[in-house]
Design a protein around this nucleic acid. Structure first.
Lengths: 256, 256
DNA sequence: GAAAGTAAGTGATTCACGTCAATGACGCTG
DNA sequence: CAGCGTCATTGACGTGAATCACTTACTTTC
């Protein structure tokens, strides 16, 4: 703890003490690979604000970039807008995940991020983070690492949207969400989708009706049960098999 | 870092002197926003090797990450492999553009990059670049900037693949290539596609046959002329209009 | 420079998924 | 808890693009 500035930790309103050091998500979040002391240093620059309500925007495309955020509870979606006005969801953010990395460097957001439900986030002013990362070598690297992961995830999504059938797309997303819930210690086979069917479809490049129908097919095949947004996997291996099957809309590339 | 050998510019074989400072691409490449002196510092860490022949691989998915590359002449494609064995081209790289950024941080490539024709690249060992970027503040920022752009480009591609018709996809790619040729002082309306129809289709999430048919349609509509890989735009405004038109396969999201 | 291999173009056919339309189920708000 | 709006589901239908099958045009090779 930097001495003397007890008065200044920028944690507002909601609990004044509980930041990264005591956060249950610290193993998933920015502090990964940071020691106790370094994590405490992070505590001092993290800010918390009112929780967002469903539909509230955390940041908008075009806005100057000032901070990155981590999700504390709830969930968000980020989307970009094409020239044609259609938007495309590029990511869903669950607790422990970082938001806003794509704006680092450009100095301006190119996506809009919106809460899918009541959501709390930690705000990490970027200038202070940069400053801190000059002192903590691991942090600088961690940042690059996370950005790199963002690129990797985008490529995976591209792969899915460009080369997979509707069933595969949905299966892949559900398994991915399952993993992410599992990482937080929640059930991997039973969870609540935070997003609407519409958003689900948009993310996967499908019409909402198609999404609905694929759910129905999974249901009748006994792969899972759906009740509104509640999902329960009944046949995980079959879902995984779907994922690996080679069938896909465009065939192309087979050269090694 | 590796002590002892920092005295020697690592430029091999092909011309010993000509690196960034005198490179015609320096305004497009890493040295953007660097001063004369800093650019000269870059000179000393850049390595050049034999040019690659068509089909040669610059790096493979899974390999440890050691360096980033910039294209000096020729062109490359990067692709990822899905579990199903299908690969998806995620980017084409033209002269002045950087390759391998997605591997920073993870320490390992997640894509394979291959020459589309005879191409020369500059190799920039990452450890030395990092070292240098500690001394040159602008360079660190430039790196982040370029990574951020990579994310942005991926989002654009996603937008295109997920929400656009075959005609729109091709038009968008052609216009994008045109711009990139233009930046290098080449014609924006007449150029040679470095990649096969197959690759073109793969990148856009289309079957090669579809790509071919779309070309044919453009041809009969008088939008452009195609002779093998030679392209000439005949009606640029019409192509641009295509790009902006709102029609797209999945409709979805219209909430603001 | 002929043979072989690979890439490109074209037509016929099929099918997955988008679109339109109508109904039913939640989940607010008062 | 009634009334409204949004979201989800389901069906009927149309279509854009994948597939399949084949021909034609380049490259590469010996």
């Amino acid at each position: 703890m930097t001495p003397g500035d007890d008065a200044y930790p920028r944690i507002r309103l909601y609990d004044i003490r509980k930041a990264c050091s005591t956060c249950s998500l610290r193993e998933l979040c920015l502090p990964v690979a940071l020691g106790r002391e370094d994590t405490e240093a992070l505590d001092h620059i993290v800010e918390r604000d009112h929780p967002l309500r469903k539909g509230d925007k955390l940041c908008r495309s075009g806005q100057p970039f000032a901070a990155i955020y981590t999700v504390l509870s709830g969930s968000l979606k980020s989307s970009t807008q094409g020239e044609n006005g259609e938007d495309q969801i590029i990511a869903f953010h669950l607790p422990g995940e970082l938001v806003g990395l794509d704006a680092i460097g450009a100095g301006r957001h190119h996506s809009t991020t919106e809460a899918l439900e009541t959501t709390s986030v930690c705000k990490i002013p970027f200038s202070r983070l940069e400053e801190l990362s000059r002192q903590i070598p691991g942090l600088q690297h961690q940042l690059l690492r996370i950005m790199s992961k963002e690129i990797f995830d985008d490529h995976e999504l591209l792969q899915v949207v460009a080369r997979r059938s509707a069933e595969q797309r949905l299966a892949i997303l559900l398994l991915n969400l399952s993993q992410r819930f599992g990482r937080r210690g929640l059930s991997r086979t039973r969870f609540r989708l935070p997003m609407s069917r519409h958003d689900l479809g948009n993310y996967l490049g499908l019409a909402p009706e198609t999404t609905s129908r694929v759910f129905r097919r999974f249901l009748t095949q006994g792969l899972l049960s759906v009740t509104g947004k509640e999902i329960e996997f009944l046949d995980l291996p079959a879902l995984q098999a779907l994922t690996e099957s080679p069938s896909a809309p465009p065939r192309s590339s087979k050269q090694g």
